[in-house]
Each structure stands twice: as C-alpha cells, then as structure tokens.
Amino acid sequence: MMNRTEVAPYESHCVELLLEKLDAYIFTYDIQEDLLRIHRAMGDTTERILEGYLQGLRKIQFGSVHPDFVEPLSLLITGQTTESQEMLIDPSLEPKGRYRWYQVAIKLIRDEAGRVTGTQGIIWDIESSTGQSDQAFARFRSERDSVTGIYNEIGLSKAVNLYIEGQGRDDDSVLLCIMLENFPRLAKEHGKRWGDQLLARICKSVGGLFRDGDVMAHLGEGVFVVFAKDLGRAEVIDAKINAIRHLFRADNMVYGSYGIHPQVGAAYYSEDGKDAGELLVVAMERMKLSIANGKK
C-alpha cells in the first residue's frame, strides 16, 4: 500500500499520461491585451504567444478555428460564458483548416477587485470519442444553439425525454419557458455581435440560478427553456421564477438598464405533460398568457 509521499508522484505521472493521451493544450488569455499563450501539455511544450488573437481570429476565414465556432470560442475565452464546449479546431503551428473535435474548458482569472481579466484553460482531443468530423458536426449543429453552446429545441427534447424515460420517470420536475421581451429589438438596434454577447451573458446568469444537472436550451430570439429536475415543492419553483425576474429589475446593476422584461411560463411533469413536447406547449401557452395579462 502506498503512503502519502508516494501517492503524489504517482498521481502526477497519471495526469501526465492522461494529458499525453488526450493530446491536450494549455492556454491563458489576457482580455485587455487580447493575447493568448498556448502550449502542448506534454511533448514539445514550446509556448506560442499570439498577439491580437481575437481580432485576428475574426478576420481569418480559413485556419485554426472552424468559422461556425469563432464566436462561441470568443465568448468562452473572454469569460462571457463558462460552460465547457466541443469545437472544431486545428491547433497546429501552421493551421490549414484540418479540423478535429476538441473540448475546450476554461477558468476565470480575476484581479484583486474581482474583475475578470482573463481566462486559463485546457483543450483536449475528443475526435475518437466524438466520431467522424462531418457526422459529429452535423449532430452538433442539429442539437446545439450556435451562439450560447447550450441545447436548441431538438437537443432539449432529446435530453429531457431521455431523463423522463429513465431515472426521472417518477420525479416532480418542471419545465420553465422564459421569454426576454424587448431583446429582439435591442439586438436589432445594437447589432448581432452585441446581441450575441449579451445573450451569452444572460445565458450564464440564468443558468447560474439552477443546478448543473438541469437542462437548459435557447430556442432563439431570447427565448430560454430550463428543465429543472426533481424540483419538488411549489415554493421552490416560485423562488426560481422570482430570481429570474430579479435579474432584470431596474435596480439590477448588470441588466437593469436594458429594459428587458422576462415572462415565464411553467409546466409540471407529469401533470401537464408526459414528454418534452407536451410540456413545452403548455409552458409557452402559460408564458403567452402572462404577457397578455401584463398588457391589460
């Protein structure tokens, strides 16, 4: 049996083997300087320093990141969203668009005042587990929202139904449909990139009100859906809805000035529906009723 002094070198060796197997890269990104430092975790660990990284990334049409993932990667490494994501990347020294599937995960770097100044993260190869790039990319696009990286309606249905048909069959779960009134108008006035960045921030804030295992989706035009698993008591659900509304109150320092009004509709499993489709129809109807009542 190993003692504690023997365990540390053993664990370090295991981590090294894992990083080598995954063909992992480690990076840090400075937001103010727009500077990325990246190197292989194992093997040739020569560090590359990429100045003006995001500015250049958005200009290069064919290279280190597939065009469909430029904006999601930008939001991730600048800390505007923190959910680990799958992306098509060519991390070679001279990228030529020979993309493979990589998983990207980040951690925020903050200064003494708590402001986010950058990110540090890891990129690892998941091509063998994800499958052929073309097939996996088609599946990704069919199930994920291109801006936030969370599920779209198809992905939501699959994830919710899988849970309901399995371990969640007897749970008291709820599906919440959240419409951000005025968001489409704001996005049109300020431009797509501004709207995408705000959407990613809102996604992170709303998601932070729920548990990691809950299912979240963006259906487009600022309409979010959260399937909260085994939520239980009605007062807990009411507290979640009030927390969502509180995010956009006029006195909220982050979102209060945008004039966004969230409307929420809830559908309860299995009282209101026995699958994702049925629950979504009920939740949207109740959301629309909330909007109508608010205009009277």
Results as ranks from 00 to 15, higher is better:
Arg245Cys: 11
Arg115Asp: 15
Asp251Phe: 06
Leu231His: 07
Leu176Asn: 00
Trp101Arg: 10
Asp251Gln: 10
Arg110Gln: 04
Pro95Phe: 02
Val70Arg: 07
Glu285Thr: 11
Gly273Val: 02
Phe248Val: 09
Pro95Ala: 01
Arg110Tyr: 02
Asp212Lys: 13
Pro91Met: 10
Leu93Gln: 12
Lys274Phe: 10
Ala159Gly: 03
Leu180Met: 12
Ala24Lys: 03
Val160Thr: 06
Val225Ile: 15
Phe210Ser: 02
Ala276Ser: 15
Glu271His: 13
Lys204Glu: 11
Glu181Trp: 00
Ile60His: 11
Asp238Leu: 05
Asp90Tyr: 05
Ile109Asn: 12
Gly52Asn: 14
Glu153Val: 06
Val236Ile: 15
Ala138Ile: 06
Arg40Met: 08
Asn152Val: 07
Glu51Gly: 10
Ile237Asp: 01
Gly114Asp: 03
Leu17Gly: 13
Ile237Phe: 04
Val65Gly: 01
Glu33Gln: 14
Gly220Leu: 09
Gly213Phe: 02
Tyr255Cys: 01
Val147Tyr: 04
Arg193Phe: 09
Asp23Gly: 11
Gln167Arg: 13
Thr130Asp: 02
Leu186Phe: 02
Gln263Asp: 04
Arg233Cys: 10
Ala292Glu: 13
Leu186Glu: 03
Thr82Met: 13
Gly195His: 09
Ala41Arg: 00
Arg201Ala: 11
Leu162Ala: 11
Met179Pro: 00
Ser257Leu: 07
Ala266Val: 12
Val174Pro: 04
Ala276Tyr: 03
Asn293Trp: 06
Phe140Ser: 04
Val226Lys: 03
His66Cys: 10
Arg115Ala: 15
Ile126Asn: 00
Lys192Thr: 15
Arg37Lys: 12
Arg58Asp: 05
Leu247Gly: 01
Gly43Asn: 10
Val160Glu: 00
Val147Ile: 14
Leu219Thr: 00
Glu47Ile: 12
Ala41Ile: 04
Ala292Trp: 08
Ser64Lys: 05
Ser133Arg: 14
Arg100Thr: 03
Val174Trp: 02
Glu83Asn: 09
Ser173Ala: 11
Leu162Pro: 01
Thr28Val: 09
Asp251Gly: 04
Pro67Ser: 06
Lys295Glu: 12
Gly114Ser: 03
Leu73His: 08
Gly149His: 00
His66Met: 06
Met253Cys: 03
Arg58Ala: 10
Leu219Trp: 01
Ile202Thr: 02
Thr28Glu: 14
Val281Leu: 11
Lys96Phe: 04
Tyr29Gly: 03
Ile241Leu: 08
Asp68Thr: 05
Val225Ser: 08
Met253Pro: 07
Leu231Ile: 15
Lys295Pro: 00
Thr82Ile: 14
Asp251Ile: 08
Pro262Asp: 07
Ser142Lys: 09
Glu181Lys: 12
Tyr269Cys: 09
Gly56Leu: 02
Asp251Met: 09
Gly168Cys: 10
Asp90Val: 08
Gly256Cys: 02
Ile38Ala: 06
Leu156Met: 13
Arg249His: 09
Gly43Glu: 08
Glu94Pro: 00
Phe62Asp: 13
Ser92Pro: 01
Leu180Lys: 01
Leu73Pro: 05
Asp23Ser: 14
Gln120Val: 13
Ala283Leu: 02
Gln132Cys: 06
Ser270His: 13
Gly277Phe: 01
Arg48Phe: 08
Asn242Arg: 14
Asn242Trp: 06
Leu57Gly: 00
Glu33Lys: 14
Arg48Gln: 14
Leu75Gln: 13
Val104Ala: 14
Ala228Gly: 11
Asp272Asn: 13
